[in-house]
C-alpha cells in the first residue's frame, strides 16, 4: 500500500513536470503562431521592450496572452470541477457539459440576448453564471437526495434530461425572438474575444476555487473511502460536501463566462489524470489542473491555425474529441472501476 503510494508520488512529480514543460511549450507556440506569424525575437521584445505603438507587440500582449491565460483557466477549472464532481456524486462520468451545467449557462445567455439586448458584460456574465449555478445545485440535489444510491448511469441520464429541458426552453426563446444566427455563435464556445477585463473578473474566483479544492483534497480522498469510514476518521462530511458543491459551482461558472458552453474536458482530463497518478485527490487535482490547461490551450492553438485569420470555435472541436472518449469510458465502466 505505502509502496504504491510512494510510487504514485514519484509518478506525480514526473508527470506534473512534463505537464508544466508542455504548457511552457504551448505558451511559446501560441505567442508565435496565429493569424500572423510573430518571430520569437519580437515576442521577447513585446514582453521586455514593449512599444504600445507597435501592433505586433500589442497583439502578443493584449490579444494572445489574455487568450492563452483564458484557455489555461478554463481547462484547469473544468478539469478540477469534473474531478470533484465525479468524487462527490460517485459518478465517474460527471462533467459540466454532460451534466447539463453548460445548458444552464446557455439559457442564461439567451435570456440576456432576448430580454436585455443592450446588456453589458457584467449582466451577461452574471446571468449565465446564475444559470450554471442553478443546474449545479439541481444536480447535487438529485445526487444527495438519492443518498448515494443513484447509479452513475442514472446521474448521466438526469443530466441529459436537464440539458434537454433547458435547451428546449432555449430553443423556444430563440424561435420566439428570431435570434437564430447569433445563438449558433454563442453556443459554440470560443475564447477569442477575451480581454484583460474578463480575466480580472475571473481570476479571483478561479484562484479561490482551486486553492479551496487543494485544501479539501485530503478530505475528498477520505470521503471516497465511504461515508462511514470518513465519519469514523472524524471528517466533517457535510462541510466537505457543501464546500465541494460551491467549488464546482464557482469553477464551472468561471469557465462558462469566459468561453461559453464546453463539454467533456471535465470527463477526459480527470480520467487520464487518475490513470497517471492514482486516486489520491492531493495528486489528482493538481495533475488535472495542469493537463486541463494544457489540453485547452493546445486545442485552441489548433483552432486558430486551421485557417489563419478566421476563428474556429473550440467548443465544437472539443466535443468531437470528447464524444469518442465518453463512449470509451462508458464501455470501460464496469460499475466497480472506481467507487464500488
Amino acid at each position: 500500500m505505502s509502496k504504491e503510494k510512494a510510487n504514485n508520488q514519484t509518478r506525480f512529480l514526473v508527470f506534473i513536470t512534463i505537464g508544466l514543460v508542455l504548457v511552457a511549450v504551448a505558451f511559446f507556440l501560441t505567442m508565435c503562431f496565429g493569424a500572423t506569424r510573430i518571430s520569437a525575437g519580437e515576442v521577447f521584445d513585446a514582453f521586455f521592450r514593449f512599444d504600445s505603438s507597435n501592433f505586433t507587440h500589442v497583439t502578443v500582449r493584449d490579444i494572445r496572452l489574455p487568450r492563452f491565460l483564458a484557455d489555461l483557466i478554463v481547462g484547469a477549472s473544468l478539469s478540477v470541477a469534473g474531478a470533484i464532481m465525479q468524487g462527490t456524486t460517485k459518478n465517474p462520468m460527471a462533467d459540466s457539459g454532460i451534466m447539463g451545467i453548460s445548458s444552464g449557462a446557455t439559457l442564461g445567455v439567451v435570456i440576456v440576448l432576448a430580454f436585455f439586448p443592450g446588456a453589458g458584460r457584467f449582466l451577461k456574465m452574471g446571468i449565465s453564471a446564475a444559470g450554471a449555478g442553478f443546474v449545479t445545485l439541481l444536480i447535487y440535489l438529485i445526487a444527495y437526495a438519492g443518498k448515494g444510491r443513484i447509479t452513475p448511469e442514472r446521474m448521466v441520464l438526469s443530466g441529459m434530461a436537464i440539458s434537454t429541458l433547458l435547451s428546449s426552453i432555449t430553443t423556444a426563446i430563440i424561435l420566439k425572438n428570431g435570434l437564430m444566427t447569433q445563438m449558433v455563435r454563442y453556443t459554440s464556445g470560443s475564447s477569442a474575444n477575451t480581454i484583460w477585463k474578463d480575466l480580472a473578473i475571473a481570476v479571483p474566483f478561479f484562484a479561490a476555487g482551486i486553492v479551496t479544492s487543494i485544501v479539501i483534497a485530503r478530505s475528498l480522498t477520505v470521503m471516497n473511502l465511504g461515508e462511514d469510514v470518513s465519519k469514523g476518521l472524524g471528517a466533517n462530511t457535510t462541510l466537505i460536501k457543501t464546500l465541494s458543491t460551491i467549488i464546482v459551482l464557482i469553477l464551472s461558472a468561471v469557465a462558462v463566462i469566459i468561453i461559453g458552453p464546453v463539454g467533456y474536458i471535465g470527463l477526459m482530463i480527470p480520467y487520464i489524470s487518475r490513470y497517471m497518478v492514482g486516486t489520491d485527490y492531493r495528486l489528482v487535482l493538481p495533475t488535472c489542473a495542469v493537463y486541463g490547461a494544457l489540453f485547452v490551450s493546445i486545442v485552441d492553438l489548433a483552432a486558430k491555425n486551421v485557417k489563419p485569420g478566421m476563428e474556429y470555435p473550440i467548443g465544437l472541436l472539443i466535443t468531437m474529441i470528447g464524444v469518442p472518449f465518453f463512449v470509451y469510458v462508458s464501455r470501460r465502466q464496469e460499475g466497480d472501476q472506481f467507487y464500488g
Binding site: 462520468m93 454532460i98 447509479t151 448511469e153 448521466v156 441520464l157 441529459m160 463539454g263 466535443t319 464524444v323 465518453f326 463512449v327 462508458s330 464501455r331 465502466q333
Partner: peptide, 13 residues
Amino acid sequence: TKLIMTGVAMGAC
C-alpha cells in the same frame, strides 16, 4: 445501462 449510456453519448455526437 451500457447501451443507454452509449445512446446518450451518440446523441451528443
